[in-house]
């Protein structure tokens, strides 16, 4: 398999918390790949291990076993790959979208996007230009100077998406991005993610237990008790879960 053609490659990924008798296996032998431009869902009930899987791919949680490759670079190989700069990888290769948008409350919408760019060493003017452009493309041009507290749930989530996209990451990881939104806003966000995956050629991996949103995904991995028990195409997933 040519790993360089995938944005994400996960092989035999295992995450065990604790040791000995108290050890709990959160993820067991997960193996899958995601291509650039693909929108993939990890679906499962609470406690099934889907967020742990996301954090292992997102370089937040160190895997116990297995391999993780992001944009052709081995980041984990039975623990973190030697010499890997996790923060730099997160900054340059990954974008994160959260359930509660996690915008910084004391920064305006524009500044929330700019901060991600400035952290990645863009100058203030460059960051401002790109952030303004991104927000405008997400129909938030009129909300640049509003604080998150003044934004609606949908608007705040779009700002969070803009922040995740700011550094043009190869992989976007989204943790329950529609959980705090109503159905209409949730569907809008999913449609937006789908559009961005195609336009930016980014792989988007979404963790969700929200069956309402499965329609837009290219592929769906069903997770239960830490194992990927099934992989659906979008048509099958829609038939199985919707309604």
């Amino acid at each position: 398999m040519d790993k360089s053609m995938y944005a994400i490659v996960v092989e035999n990924l295992t995450k065990v918390y604790g040791k000995g008798e108290t050890a709990v296996t959160a993820i067991a032998d997960a193996t899958f790949q995601v291509r650039p431009g693909e929108l993939v869902a990890i679906l499962g009930p609470s406690g099934s291990g889907k967020t742990t899987l996301l954090t292992c791919i997102g370089l937040i949680n160190e895997p116990t076993h297995g391999t993780v490759v992001i944009d052709g670079a081995v980041v984990a190989d039975g623990g973190w790959h030697g010499g890997i700069d996790l923060k730099r990888m997160r900054r340059e290769k990954l974008g994160f979208i959260f359930q509660a948008h996690n915008l910084i409350p004391f920064l305006t919408a524009l500044e929330n996007v700019m901060i991600a760019l400035e952290i990645n060493h863009l100058t203030r003017n460059e960051a401002k230009g790109r952030a303004t452009e991104l927000l405008a493309s997400l129909n938030l041009g009129h909300r640049l100077n509003n604080y998150p507290s003044a934004l609606s749930g949908g608007e705040a989530q779009r700002v969070a998406i803009a922040r995740a996209l700011a550094n043009k990451p190869k992989v976007i990881l989204a943790d329950e991005p529609t959980a705090a939104l109503d159905t209409e806003n949730g569907k809008n966000v999913m449609a937006l993610l789908k559009k961005l995956a195609v336009e930016n050629h980014s792989a988007i991996l979404v963790v969700t237990h929200d069956h309402r949103m499965v329609e837009g995904f290219d592929r769906i991995f069903q997770v239960s008790d830490g194992r990927i028990i099934d992989e659906h195409n979008k048509v099958a997933a829609g038939r199985d879960h919707v309604g």
Partner: peptide
């Protein structure tokens, strides 16, 4: 705490 965690997640250096 959540702001700091978010900053760390998006790759902010400790000096920030």
């Amino acid at each position: 705490i959540r702001v700091i965690a978010t900053l760390k997640l998006i790759g902010a250096q400790n000096r920030v």
